[in-house]
């Protein structure tokens, strides 16, 4: 459905995303993981043709066979909500405070599907039921500030689903919510993806949340996709030193089971240093300078992608880690 090839996004000649290539098949649930500033949010925006105007986009974004990377805004507009929709981080500020919930959800349907007021309202109510909001009829006439944080996020999801998109992009959708509520939103996203056969790109810095929702994940660092593979495998057996650092940095409550919530994590402790500014990233491997197993060649030479095992896993590292001895 989505085919992304060599997608690069650069600001003033500095690449914030460097030739990323991946597919999003129908109904797939893909995690996009990394620290803030790694390029994951801007990649997400590019999936909707909403990269900042100051960004130079190159490469190919193919949606259902249609090349979109250089498509005019008008074409993108007709794709948004109908083919791809997005859910943002802060559910309160992402909802127009002056509009009723029903109108927020109905607006894209009236615009794209040309529904009349009554039909749009009826569908909005059905959507509220689908995203698990009790007493939907009353909610339609309420304003965002009258809802709880979790309910606002559900409203935002309902608006995103209003025109039955094939792909939902969720950018840190639970960061602003408390743990219990966040967990239920994660389950909702997963369930919606399954029942609607809708693809989901789930962006997070929280590995537990990604493990809970997605089947496959991409790890990004400094604009590079450094590792990818099935989520469970990748978490159990990381091959890129950055992925390993990420996993080790999360607070461990229990070595085996993942925590069931999506609570925000403190800063990564086990990776020395911090993500450099865009202009200061090394030319070769982006992780050079912070990497515990760095070799002299790393900073100057961009590693090629190595395919591991039967082909499901890829890593961009000169010297990938050896397989961990995990019990099957």
């Amino acid at each position: 459905m989505y085919k992304i090839r060599n997608l690069s996004l650069s600001f003033d000649g500095h690449e914030a995303v460097r030739s990323a290539s991946f597919d999003i098949p129908r109904g797939a649930r893909l995690g996009l993981v990394g620290e803030s500033g790694c390029g994951k949010s801007i990649t997400a925006l590019a999936l909707l043709g909403m990269a900042p105007a100051s960004a130079r986009v190159s490469g190919s974004i193919e949606i259902d066979g249609q090349e979109m990377a250089a498509a005019p805004e008008r074409l993108w507009r007709s794709y948004r909500a109908r083919k791809v929709a997005m859910v943002f981080q802060e559910p309160l500020s992402a909802l127009n405070p002056l509009k009723r919930v029903g109108d927020i959800i109905a607006e894209p349907m009236r615009l794209h599907l040309r529904l009349d007021r009554r039909a749009a309202r009826a569908r909005a109510r059905d959507l509220l039921v689908e995203v698990g909001i009790p007493d939907p009829e009353a909610r339609l006439d309420q304003y965002p500030h009258q809802l709880s944080g979790g309910q606002r996020q559900r409203v935002l999801i309902a608006a995103a689903l209003s025109c039955d998109p094939q792909l939902l992009v969720a950018d840190e959708p639970t960061t602003a919510l408390d743990a219990h509520v966040a967990g239920r939103i994660l389950d909702l996203l997963k369930r919606l993806s399954e029942t609607r056969d809708m693809a989901l790109v789930f962006i997070s810095h929280d590995l537990e949340a990604v493990a809970r929702v997605t089947e496959e994940m991409l790890v990004m660092y400094g604009g590079d996709i450094v590792e990818r593979g099935p989520t469970a495998q990748l978490l159990a057996d990381p091959r890129h030193p950055y992925t390993k650092g990420l996993i080790e940095a999360r607070p461990r409550l229990d070595a085996l089971t993942l925590r069931a919530d999506g609570a925000p994590r403190p800063r990564l402790a086990s990776i020395p240093g911090s993500v450099p500014a865009l202009a200061d990233l090394p030319k070769g491997c982006r992780f050079a300078g912070r990497c515990p197993i760095e070799r002299p060649a790393c900073a100057g030479l961009r590693p090629a992608v190595s395919v591991l095992g039967p082909g499901q896993r890829q890593v961009r590292c000169l010297a990938p880690l050896l397989p961990a001895k995990v019990p099957a």
Binding site: M50, R77, R80, A81, F88, L95, N96, L98, P108, C163
Partner: peptide, 25 residues
């Protein structure tokens, strides 16, 4: 603000975003 971005992400035209969402706020 985020809701201007939300409106854009739902496929609203710049004009609609401006007059329907940004200006009232």
């Amino acid at each position: 603000l985020d809701y201007a971005r939300t409106a854009r992400a739902l496929g609203l035209s710049p004009r609609r975003v401006m007059w329907g969402h940004v200006l009232p706020n």
